[in-house]
Amino acid sequence: MLSVAKKFKDVFPMFKDQEIFYQCFPCPEDWEKVEKICEILEVFNAIRKIISSSDYPTSNLFLNEVYRVKMLLDKRANDEDEFIRAMIGKMKVKFDKYWGECNLLMSVATVLDPRCKMRVVDFTFSRMYSDREARENIAKVREALHEIYEEYVREYQHGNEHSGETPMHNNDDVSNNGKDSSGWSEFSSYVKSIEKASPQQSDLDAYLTESCFIFEGDPNQFNALEWWKGSTLKYRILSRMTHDILAIPISTVASEATFSAGGRVIATYRVSLAPETVQGFLCRGDWCRNLHGVKKKNKVSL
């Protein structure tokens, strides 16, 4: 609304001359405040578009954007304008209330972005927290990563034990069974028995020690899930864990659709639906549109 009002800055005086009941005419000082407020809110608007998108996973993008807000608030907290200082002060109180503590889901998801890994945690935490808090929070993230990974390792090993794999045949079995005369079955069983042994370095350790993936294109066009899909054979266990974590939506529905679609879903005849059912309707609609490449049409204001 403020950005639109700026475009009609010269129209307000003419409207005041024609409409005698118009009493909210902004003075030059008000327009200066509008300019400064828009500079701040434009950052929030850009972050909202990134985080609330429903076309790609966004949980791995959240930490960098929260860090961006933190740096903006710290920079403008000592603004020369008293009005801006007062506004930023109220915003910092709410920000510290919600983000003063380390969000493990947000941090773990960002680490699983191949462009970031633990380097993004080291970079952001050292600027968002004190030295002691930064070290403690980094240690918490590492501990959470390994705990989650160990659960997936146990599940993976348990699944292999009950997978019903064919045991390795001896030479007599191979010679007596014409179906295995190629010799590939014996070698395949040998490989499976070797691969079942615990590797010296886990998928998680190998992933964290490797260099970050450098993506040269638009950062907003990078899909972390697609990257992990192509790395499934390299990180067999870690890829399963990553698919589950990165698929967690930061918001259940895009911010614009919250208001535009809510009235259609919760109609007069559906007021008794449970919140979980309504959420399922909204998510299913977004998933179907994304699956078939259907984009929502933006409303054109006349």
Rank of each mutant, 00 (worst) to 15 (best):
E133N: 14
P249Q: 07
Y156A: 15
Q200R: 13
I20W: 03
S189C: 09
M106S: 10
V271A: 07
S251R: 02
C24A: 12
M168Y: 01
E210F: 06
V174D: 08
S211I: 00
K90E: 12
Q221S: 15
I194L: 15
E101R: 14
D55K: 13
I20C: 03
A257M: 09
E161V: 07
D172K: 10
L105D: 13
E150F: 06
K296M: 05
T166M: 11
F215Q: 02
P219V: 00
I50S: 13
P57M: 07
K196F: 05
G164Q: 05
N64K: 11
S239T: 12
C24F: 09
Y190W: 13
F215C: 01
H158W: 04
V111W: 00
L291C: 03
F125I: 02
E136V: 07
Q221V: 06
E216T: 11
S231I: 00
L72S: 05
F259R: 15
K97I: 02
E80R: 12
R236M: 13
L41H: 02
A86V: 11
A144K: 13
D30K: 01
R264V: 14
H162D: 04
S202Y: 10
R236Q: 13
H146M: 02
G178C: 04
P199L: 10
Y22L: 13
A247K: 05
I237M: 03
S182L: 11
V271S: 13
Q221H: 10
K9A: 08
F62S: 09
Y129M: 06
Y22D: 04
E256F: 14
L145Q: 02
R132F: 12
K234G: 04
N64E: 13
N60W: 01
L238Y: 02
T277H: 15
V111L: 01
I20G: 07
F123M: 14
K196C: 11
N160G: 13
G263R: 12
S185F: 07
V153F: 00
R48W: 01
I194W: 09
C288M: 14
G293Q: 07
W184G: 00
C116K: 00
R85L: 09
Y98S: 15
S301K: 13
T242R: 02
R284E: 11
L145V: 02
D17C: 08
R115Q: 00
S239V: 01
Y56P: 01
K196Y: 11
Y269F: 08
K140T: 02
S54P: 03
W228N: 03
C283L: 14
S53C: 11
S198C: 12
D173V: 15
S54E: 07
D122M: 02
V141E: 01
W99E: 03
I47S: 08
T166K: 06
K140P: 00
G285A: 11
P26Q: 03
D286C: 08
R240W: 05
A261K: 09
